[in-house]
Design a protein around this nucleic acid. Sequence first.
DNA 1: TCCACGACTTAGAAAGAGCCCT
DNA 2: AGGGCTCTTTCTAAGTCGTGGA
Length: 635
Amino acid sequence: MFASAVKLVESADYKPKKIKTEDIKKAKKRKQEEEEDSKAKKVKSKDKKVPEVDKKKKPKKEEEQKWKWWEEERYPEGIKWKFLEHKGPVFAPPYEPLPENVKFYYDGKVMKLSTKAEEVATFFAKMLDHEYTTKEIFRKNFFKDWRKEMTSEEKSTITSLSKCDFTHMSQYFKAQSEARKQMSKEEKQKIKEENERLLKEYGYCVMDNHKERIANFKIEPPGLFRGRGNHPKMGMLKRRIMPEDIIINCSKDSKIPAPPPGHKWKEVRHDNKVTWLVSWTENIQGSIKYIMLNPSSRIKGEKDWQKYETARRLKKCVDKIRNQYREDWKSKEMKVRQRAVALYFIDKLALRAGNEKEEGETADTVGCCSLRVEHIKLHPELDGQEYVVEFDFLGKDSIRYYNKVPVEKRVFKNLQLFMENKQPEDDLFDRLNVSTQFMTSILNKHLQDLMEGLTAKVFRTYNASITLQQQLKELTNPDDNIPAKILSYNRANRAVAILCNHQRAPPKTFEKSMMNLQSKIDAKKEQLADARRELKSAKADAKVRRDEKSKKTVESKKKAVQRIEEQLMKLEVQATDREENKQIALGTSKLNYLDPRISVAWCKKWGIPIEKIYNKTQREKFAWAIDMAEEDYEF
DNA sequence: TCCACGACTTAGAAAGAGCCCT
DNA sequence: AGGGCTCTTTCTAAGTCGTGGA
């Protein structure tokens, strides 16, 4: 495996190709700033040998894991790698026709479908229990695309989806998945091993002397497109991706992955200005999909680190920027006022930028700059508060954003002005015929002038991280035990998730599991009462007897009570935590918005094991932060 | 000049793994 | 040992934002 990678390692002291000196300066400057900011450990010089890999032995696992890319010099802007070798993607398994005895019925009569039509029919059959298949748009799109796969005879027979009966097929698949669950240990083990083999062979690449995990090395299988929310394209057929659709990206001097026998790649390119290994164009939106590296990889981690450094730079100038936009609310230029109000929302409410979308191609969702008049209501007074703006719109993934926010008088007056003489479906922040640019582009250009690298999304990162830090300070009680401290952490995390509007559907089993927990608590309480009674009687007993043995009994009973108290406390904390978390998803903010060094520092400060905060995957992703953050880290 | 396209991050749902209780 | 529940992992859709080419 990776023969040429080994070769490369031998000549490890690769030299950078020609780089514009400007870029070098920029990179150096940036690096310096970051070193100061993060008190990062000393960066090794480039000549320092990368851990030598013995070409006879496999790369030592531990050594690979211990690689601290964050201590290495960064590449100049634009160049993403020097060497890249991989095995190409894993394709979806080919379609296996249904057994003869599994029937499809049309208009009450058995009908044998051609393989192609049958395959698409199985996609629908597999989703029969899903709400999707009841939606008109889904059915219409599916039927249209299905007909394209039919033979002409099938096309002339099958003219109405409602006459199609997929239930037998559906039952077959249910039985299949049931059978899979019932498989013996050995069979399951075999499948597991096969998956591991696949991961071992295709799940890794070599990028610049290091073996790195690939995030999604499997090509998306064909199926029916499941958009989120009210998507106009739901139900359309996502076609099967063939090697002929695939662009391979790797280095010239690497072993180029071989296409499956009898096939060719669409293209093999060697572009080290991008990070992806494989790409193809998807047929629903016509957009490009990529195979890229795992979050634990150098290339993703560096970018992530950089993101938080940009947010920290915003921290230094956010006051200035806030003063600036408050001034701009008074501007005589309408464009500037709109920009300033939009920025105020992005900052105060952590809204997304809200780029322009092509109408009718996606679900109707908006962000800040694409808000329409119909999405806000102005209340000069509401529930005893003045100047309240009521937001109600669908954001990313069609998640509803609903919020009533008191705003400053000037903002309120401006909003009234922006809404004057407009229809509900008009843009709140229109372009005023002054510019053809959409508000996001106006805004981001302005932000770029205020701070290098500043864009609308940086505010979300900044506000999320600063909120976590401040909430942790506020909520952590030094006298609390570990579970209580973790509850505080989760609460701080939750404050961020609420700010960012990260929601989830309440788990289907929520009520039930809550009741289960409650009965556990009740049982524990009883147990505690019993233990206390026993302790009491043991004490009384010891008073009378005054011997060693009864003293010992008292001690052990005392311990038992203590233990049960702790267990009860833990359960109660768990219940509170879960209740408060019902509709809130903590994962997204933890993974994408919270500077991990804040969490690491908090753990170090209070002696909380990092495993309580980050699971294995998260620890891998945030290895850089775990390694470098000390307890006094300040975002 | 601008805008469609490309690259990359962020997102919730669903599937899978594993744990705990009976 | 099996069933249910929870936590983790996988999946891929849906955003953001910069830029290259008409």
